[in-house]
Computed example of a mutant assay.
Amino acid sequence: MTGDRSDARRNYQRILAVAEAEVAAHGAQASQEKIARTAGVGSATVRRHFPTRRALLEAVFQERVEGLCERAQRLSATEDGRTALLEWLHAFVLYAVSARGFAHVLSYEPPTEEPSPNSCGGRIEAAATPLIQRAIRDKAVAPHVTFHDLLTLSVGIALATEHHTAPDIQASRLFRLAVEGLSPEQRTAGGTAGSGPSAPVTGSLPNEHV
């Protein structure tokens, strides 16, 4: 019995290592059959460990998702709520555009679908929500902005730029253009909210990966 469990763990690790290479090369469309052949196991063994393509992709990106979550926790201790949120979002966009298949995993979870707590989307939402709520409390982000708004924005930028000759540069450019839309509208003299221009974007966005 112990030997069976050891074999299962070895198979899991071998399949996952092969899957990481295949997803890096082919994105979300990586062939599960090819993964099985390269790992030296049957297709049934792959499906026993990863019943669906999504389950396989979730496992491939698990470690980097943890990195994004840990970064969100570190940034929650910084003084400026807006800077913390924008720095994390920028890192998230850069990872999404650099890791083939990652944006597709997140796009499987529309706002109408409640992601499971252990899914990539569920863990990222749990980590990012405090940053968003803090920025809203600081009046640095409009109160109607939601996590799913930012997820849709980030995934859209990643999918639109992943085949660009310089995807990280183009993704950063689009992100900077979109940031203005996250700012609450200013009140003008004698006017009401919604009549003034958007608040200016402040702070810099570091060009670094997670």
Rank of each mutant, 00 (worst) to 15 (best):
G27F: 07
G27A: 05
A28C: 08
A28M: 02
Q29E: 15
Q29D: 15
Q29I: 09
Q29S: 15
Q29P: 04
A30Q: 14
A30Y: 03
S31V: 01
S31I: 02
S31H: 01
S31P: 04
Q32L: 15
Q32D: 11
Q32S: 13
Q32N: 08
Q32R: 14
E33S: 04
E33T: 03
K34R: 10
K34H: 12
K34C: 01
I35D: 00
I35T: 11
I35P: 00
A36L: 04
A36I: 02
A36V: 07
R37E: 13
T38D: 09
T38E: 11
T38M: 08
T38V: 13
G40Y: 01
G40C: 14
G40F: 09
V41T: 09
V41D: 09
V41Q: 04
V41L: 12
G42R: 01
G42E: 05
G42I: 02
S43D: 06
S43N: 09
S43E: 08
A44I: 11
A44K: 12
A44V: 14
T45I: 13
T45G: 05
T45V: 14
T45M: 13
T45C: 14
V46I: 06
V46Q: 07
R47D: 02
R47T: 12
R47L: 15
R47F: 10
R47I: 08
R48M: 11
R48E: 13
H49R: 10
F50K: 01
F50C: 09
F50Y: 15
F50M: 03
P51G: 05
T52F: 02
T52P: 08
R53M: 11
R53W: 06
R54C: 06
A55F: 10
A55M: 05
A55L: 09
L56Y: 02
L56W: 05
L57E: 10
L57I: 10
L57T: 03
L57V: 05
L57S: 00
L57K: 02
E58K: 07
A59R: 04
A59L: 00
A59D: 14
A59G: 03
V60M: 00
Q62I: 01
